[in-house]
């Protein structure tokens, strides 16, 4: 089961349709089991019964998640695959000592993948939809996967299956969520 975490400012907000439902639709089409939970309602049982976790994005004006980083301290020690999208990436960065910094960007932009990973594949240029007021600094122990040091588009923990992407894969890059889903399947079926 994939745990999909809603980071919007409150449970069942109007933003959920925009930032959570498109992710679950991708998982549903892939035939994967998932469960949605709001960030304020996560329980240890849910975390430990999941095979992997997706932390979703939020509305541009919604920065409540950045004031609730303590809710996500469990990320630090969890060995399971985690994908943080936009706000979710910012949360991952903050938990590992990175900074959330003003870096507004809206719309389709070119993205340079600079390091090969199992999630984003080999270095190349892609185009992605951005919708954020904040970016991150690269936390210690993470590799820059896309973008550049002052403008991190994607990162991965050097030793763990812990990924962050600042753009929104549900728009024109659904393959990223599908690949994360496939990686989870591999990790749960590989002895």
């Amino acid at each position: 089961m994939i745990l999909v975490v809603d980071l919007c400012f409150k449970p069942q907000s109007l933003s959920k349709y925009e930032f959570v439902d498109p992710i679950t639709a991708i998982l549903r089409r892939a035939g994967s089991e998932y469960e949605v939970v709001h960030s304020t309602e996560i329980t240890p049982d849910l975390i430990y019964s999941s095979d992997g976790i997706i932390l979703c994005g939020t509305a541009l004006k919604d920065d409540i998640y950045a004031r609730r980083i303590d809710l996500f301290s469990w990320i630090r020690d969890l060995e399971k695959p985690i994908l943080g999208i936009c706000a979710g990436m910012q949360v991952v960065a903050a938990v590992f000592g990175g900074e959330i910094v003003p870096q507004p960007k809206i719309g389709l932009e070119k993205i340079m993948i600079v390091k090969e990973t199992d999630l984003l594949g080999p270095p190349r240029q892609i185009e992605g939809y951005h919708l954020h007021n904040f970016g991150v600094t690269l936390p210690q122990g993470f590799d820059l996967v896309a973008g550049r040091p002052g403008e991190v588009e994607a990162f991965k923990h050097a030793e763990r299956p812990l990924y962050g992407i600042i753009f929104h894969p549900e728009v024109r890059n659904r393959w990223i969520v599908e690949r994360f889903d496939a990686l989870l399947l591999e990790s749960t079926t590989t002895p």
């Binding site: 109007l14 349709y17 925009e18 439902d21 639709a25 004006k61 919604d62 728009v171």
Partner: peptide, 27 residues
């Protein structure tokens, strides 16, 4: 439509408004 959505998002940001797209990416 990224064309429409991005433009409305920018106007909302400039006016300090929340922006909601509750049909976004719906099948």
């Amino acid at each position: 439509s990224v064309y429409q959505a991005a433009r409305v998002q920018r106007i909302c940001r400039d006016l300090d408004l929340w922006c909601y797209n509750p049909l976004w990416q719906i099948d």
